[in-house]
């Protein structure tokens, strides 16, 4: 690779680097420093998006796409999903329990970064830039054949590694299933029959009332109404704070235009005239 073949890095790329680089760094630092895990995840998304752009700039448009779609899209969503499952408020306390851990980690980190950075800077000062135009140039531009170039190598020289990676993914999926499965002793799982019997033995055999969605509001936080006009507390899922809504207009009856009951009544006069038309409106 003679220096003649070197591709000169353009000013545009330098601009991109100097804009996105600090952004990515800020994202990384933000991830480490945020107390809230969800914020950390969002900071990380910032960094990963920046990196994706870097990939594209560095003649790897396919990987850039993968980075944004798979990493930022799928994997980070998985992180958030687990965070929600585990509870987003399980954030770190400020107090470091291991004595000297933070100081040591910071000092070591600075030292490591200084050593490796200095070493890399020294070693790669005159790193030639051959560029990938020679292998992946296509009709649409210098990087248009990137996918083809990757595929050509992936399915020839790296075929075995590719197959093994596939196997690894299968194993990972099965492994995740195995880890998350809750072991139950045989026979301890109750069937529909047992569940029904157990429910009928309580003083509430029927289902819980539904929330007031569609009936009175557009949110699941709106509780269902009881026939006496009270609020059915049971109609809300646990953990949802009930939302105050306007009480339903009373005595409007089916004559009121625009009400669903009126519409239904107009279609079929034999229909029951229970207000709300719901089965769960019974007194407890």
């Amino acid at each position: 690779m003679t220096p003649d073949a070197a591709v000169v890095i353009g000013t545009g790329e330098a601009v991109v680097f100097w804009i996105l680089g600090p952004l990515a760094l800020a994202g990384a630092l933000g991830m480490v420093l945020s107390r809230n895990a969800v914020h950390s995840a969002l900071w990380l998304v910032l960094t990963m998006l920046s990196l994706g752009v870097f990939y594209v700039v560095q003649s790897a448009p396919f990987l850039g796409a993968v980075q944004i779609i798979v990493y930022t899209g799928a994997i980070m969503i998985l992180f958030l999903f687990v965070l929600m499952l585990v509870g987003r408020d399980s954030s770190d306390s400020v107090v470091e329990t291991l004595r000297g851990q933070r100081v040591a980690a910071t000092l070591l980190g600075i030292g490591f970064a200084a050593l490796v950075g200095a070493g890399i800077a020294r070693a790669t000062q005159d790193l030639p830039v051959v560029g990938l135009a020679g292998v992946q140039a296509g009709p649409g531009g210098p990087d248009a054949g990137n996918v083809e170039a990757i595929a050509a190598l992936l399915y020839t020289r790296y075929l075995l590694a590719f197959e093994v990676t596939g196997a690894l993914l299968i194993v990972a999926a099965v492994g995740a299933l195995v880890f998350t499965q809750v072991e139950r002793a045989p026979g301890s799982r109750s069937g529909q029959k047992e569940l029904s019997r157990a429910r009928f033995l309580t003083d509430r055999p029927q289902t819980l009332p539904g929330p007031g969605v569609y009936a009175r509001a557009t949110s699941v936080a709106a509780p269902g109404m009881l026939p006496d006009g009270g609020i059915a507390e049971d109609s809300l899922a646990t953990g949802i704070e009930p939302q105050r809504v306007e009480p339903a207009p009373r005595g409007a009856g089916r004559h009121q235009l625009g009400s669903p009951d009126a519409a239904l009544g107009a279609l079929d006069p034999t229909v029951s005239d229970t207000p709300g038309g719901r089965e769960g409106g019974e007194h407890r």
């Binding site: 680089g21 760094l25 980190g109 970064a113 950075g117 800077a121």
Partner: peptide, 23 residues
Amino acid sequence: MSLSYYLVFAAILFTIGAVGVLV
């Protein structure tokens, strides 16, 4: 601007990640 910028930048990101693991 040369490629070593990217490399040093990656090293810094790596270190930040490592320190994050520790703290």
